[in-house]
Amino acid sequence: MGATTDPAADTAAVAKLGFKPGQLVQEFGWDEHVDDDFRVAVEELTGNELLDEDADDVADVVLCWFRGGDGDLGDALVDAITNLTDGGIVWLLTPKKGRPGHVTAAEIDEAAPSVGLHATSSVSASANWAGTRMTTPKSGRR
């Protein structure tokens, strides 16, 4: 489930997800199976390296790679929003249906509100990964 082979497709996917130059993006759940070309496209579009899980910077966007078997999705989302700016976006990236580690929409819909997030849309992020866009309520989560 690693990298794709079409950098233009990755750039288009990243732009479609709404990434913008100058944004700080923090990444959670990285392992050797994530889509590295997608990650590089995010860095190229934003002009910043991805912040790792231990960074203390306030992030505009969080990429949260999550596979079934990674533990509790709610716990992963709590970690993901720790440094998220008010009004920031979480992109939950999960393996597409039929791939090992697939996470159902029902699991996502159950976990998101329990941590104060609202799943707003789902897209194909890359060849093997689906993306679910999550936001905090308009009134803020704090």
Rank of each mutant, 00 (worst) to 15 (best):
M1Y: 05
G2A: 14
T5H: 11
P7N: 03
P7S: 03
A9Y: 04
D10M: 14
D10Y: 03
D10S: 15
V14N: 03
A15W: 08
A15F: 09
K16D: 14
G18Q: 05
P21L: 05
L24R: 10
V25W: 01
V25K: 01
Q26N: 08
Q26F: 09
G29K: 07
V34T: 05
F38Y: 11
A41Y: 03
V42I: 09
G47K: 09
E49P: 00
L50D: 05
L51N: 02
D52N: 11
D52F: 07
D54V: 04
A55G: 08
D56S: 10
D57V: 00
V58K: 10
A59E: 04
V61L: 10
V62L: 07
V62I: 15
V62C: 15
L63Y: 10
L63A: 09
G71Y: 07
L73S: 01
D75G: 13
A76Y: 09
A76P: 06
V78H: 12
D79V: 08
N83F: 10
G88D: 04
G88Q: 05
G88V: 06
V90Q: 12
V90H: 13
W91H: 14
W91Y: 10
L93P: 01
T94M: 07
P95R: 04
K96E: 07
R99D: 02
T104K: 13
T104V: 09
T104I: 08
D109A: 11
E110F: 05
S114P: 00
L117W: 10
S121G: 12
A125F: 01
N128F: 00
W129Q: 00
W129A: 00
A130M: 04
G131Y: 07
R133S: 05
M134W: 11
T136S: 15
T136Y: 04
P137I: 02
K138M: 15
S139C: 02
R141E: 02
